[in-house]
Design a protein around this nucleic acid. Structure first.
Lengths: 356, 356
DNA sequence: ACGTGCAATAAAAACGTTTTTATTTTCCTT
DNA sequence: AAGGAAAATAAAAACGTTTTTATTGCACGT
């Protein structure tokens, strides 16, 4: 039985193969392939033809070693522990998908680094920058005071963050306008007659959780009311958190009459809790949420949400990183998306707002 | 204003730095660091101490170039197009998380390759193997007759697939026992008195979709009934597909009385449709589903599911790949997980089965 | 005392590139 | 027709490793 020719047997054509094949020196081959103007057009054509013929592909490791570049774009990804896994972090599929789209066809390869804790994330980021494991870095889960941003800015290492910190630093980033998002949702509920509004929020050390609280407060302030700050709860964004929190809130002497939920997983938990409490959305209580994987339309009842174009955020992250890696200034690379309201049955706040 | 020292200014310690620092030659340094037995213990200690002191870390590119290894583990990931994004592929977060856990601490770096179509996936797989862009490959979405498996086996390139094809080939894989899973769900419904059972399935070119149909058929056969094959529908596994399909099924003259749903996204769509049709799960109709991101407990009503340990599958994929890359035979690297039933209200099939 | 064999280390080559420096060729100027 | 600048290409060096080959020093047996 003849053993199949293993992929490791064959040897790939290198620049040397091309040199032998065409009679030019390896230096000339290299220059021709890189499009250097010092080689004659005729020579270049000849070499390119040979490259095509032999199926030559530049060896990334050789290039990397010589140039010092890695041709890797690193992404930090939170790793969930197996135990109580629930929906958590699912939007990462979209983010990676977007980044991958941006990188597609270019020279950069997407490299994923998992981390288990924030400290871990910092350590990994530092290692990537210090050892130049990649030419650039993308990460999310930005804290109000994020040491990664400070460190990377200081080191002048190319990166793009999904989210903004609260320090006065210039860096490339993409974000959702969380302040406005929370403001708009809260204002809509206030206009609908609500005073006791709960905010099911992310952990308050996260920068965007603070932004949401700011928007929440602004809505009350503009309406001339005191914000119901006792109803602002932060936690991990799982369905369980949504349910547990809701059950707790409605045990209070003065429960909320409406809830703003920061993602769909918590929303699902909130709806589950409301249903088990015998409360009906749109009648006894109102809920406004934010999309991440866009299934709110299928909840019972369907929930009015603000749509966040997560995949687009991902694509922009990738695009910005590419620019940043070719030394585009960080100042220009910033984009903040405003979520878009998608009204759904039976959110009849619009009606209550006096429109009909 | 003094410019911050950029990360690209400093030069990292190399094996040469260590050589200069200790007085040994670079060859000896290399051997000492790799733990070769030819160097004296005293020398090794001395060199390791110097390495620690200078914070030396081996340069992956240098190693890669010399050894021909890439120290990259590639993963093929489906890329969803931005347009109608819905939940699709969210389980990839868990899979990547599991793989990342397996790779953690080792020498291999996780490299993600996006693909937009099956042909694209094949092309990317071939490129990875041909050009040795990575030392190993993981992919999912296996077809009954999957050209990637045939090609990689033929080339003897290390890989692990999530899913099994229907060709007689020896290759490392991890899978869910889909035949059994569908069998168990269908049998449970048949025992509960159902005859007209729908199977909301993946596209039938996918190997596991066929496995599910097999199990579905076996359950009917063992009960001595004709399977309701007209109620087996394949499609993309979105919530929209679940809803549209359900609405269609219940317009038929002879609609199903129970449904088996292949993942949670479709389940959500199915529930949404049932609700809009005025049907109540556990009363007019029964539903059994399969977990992917484990939120079925929060559906209204909560749905009985078979739990699939997706993150564990991911971890096993990574573990198997590591073994495969050090030349462990593929034959030993196979594991098929059986999902576990998680009964939830208001699935009262248990009651109807005559237990009480 | 003197090769022998072995242990320890040094030196050199190689992996596939890019880049710098050197050489050859061409062609223009006088 | 000779000299020299410019153009084209070749040669060599370098990136950081690992591995193969060469060298050194030393203990040993005779």
């Amino acid at each position: 039985m003849a053993k199949a020719k293993s992929v490791s047997d064959r040897t790939l054509p290198t620049i040397k193969t091309l040199a032998a094949h065409t009679g030019y020196s390896i230096g000339t081959i290299s220059k021709a392939l890189r499009g250097s103007p010092v080689v004659t057009n005729a020579t270049r054509e000849e070499i390119l033809a040979a490259a095509r013929e032999l199926g030559y592909q530049a060896n990334a490791r050789g290039m990397a070693l010589r140039t010092g570049k890695t041709y890797q774009a690193a992404v930090l990804m939170p790793i969930t522990s197996a135990a109580g896994y629930e929906w958590d972090g699912v939007e990462y599929t979209q983010i990676l998908s977007g980044i991958s789209q941006a990188l597609d066809g270019g020279d950069y390869q997407l490299s994923v680094y998992g981390y288990r804790s924030f400290d871990d994330a910092c350590a990994v980021a530092r290692r990537i920058a210090d050892q130049r494991l990649a030419d650039g870095l993308i990460f999310s889960g930005v804290l109000a005071n994020d040491p990664r941003i400070a460190m990377l800015v200081e080191a002048d290492f190319p990166f793009v963050s999904l989210g903004r910190c609260r320090q006065q630093l210039v860096y490339a980033h993409v974000d959702v306008d969380n302040e406005w998002a929370a403001y708009a949702a809260t204002a809509r509920l206030i206009a609908g007659g609500h005073q006791r509004i709960a905010l099911i929020n992310a952990e308050p050390r996260l920068s965007y959780a603070l932004d949401r609280i700011d928007g929440f407060n602004r809505a009350f302030r503009e309406a001339g009311n005191e914000p119901s700050l006792d109803l602002v709860i932060g936690g991990d964004l799982t369905a369980r958190f949504g349910r547990d929190t809701t059950l707790k809130l409605f045990k209070q002497p003065s429960p909320p009459t409406a809830l703003v939920c920061v993602n769909e997983a918590t929303t699902l938990g909130v709806l589950s809790a409301l249903s088990s409490l015998g409360l009906r959305v749109g009648e006894n209580v109102d809920v406004i949420a934010y999309d991440d994987i866009n299934v709110s339309a299928y909840f019972s009842p369907p929930i009015t949400t603000f749509y966040q174009p997560i995949e687009l955020l991902g694509r922009r992250l990738g695009e910005f990183l590419l620019l940043r890696m070719v030394d585009e200034g960080a100042a220009k690379l910033a984009e903040v998306f405003r979520p878009e309201l998608i009204g759904r049955q039976p959110d009849n706040l619009g009606g209550r707002l006096g429109r009909s």
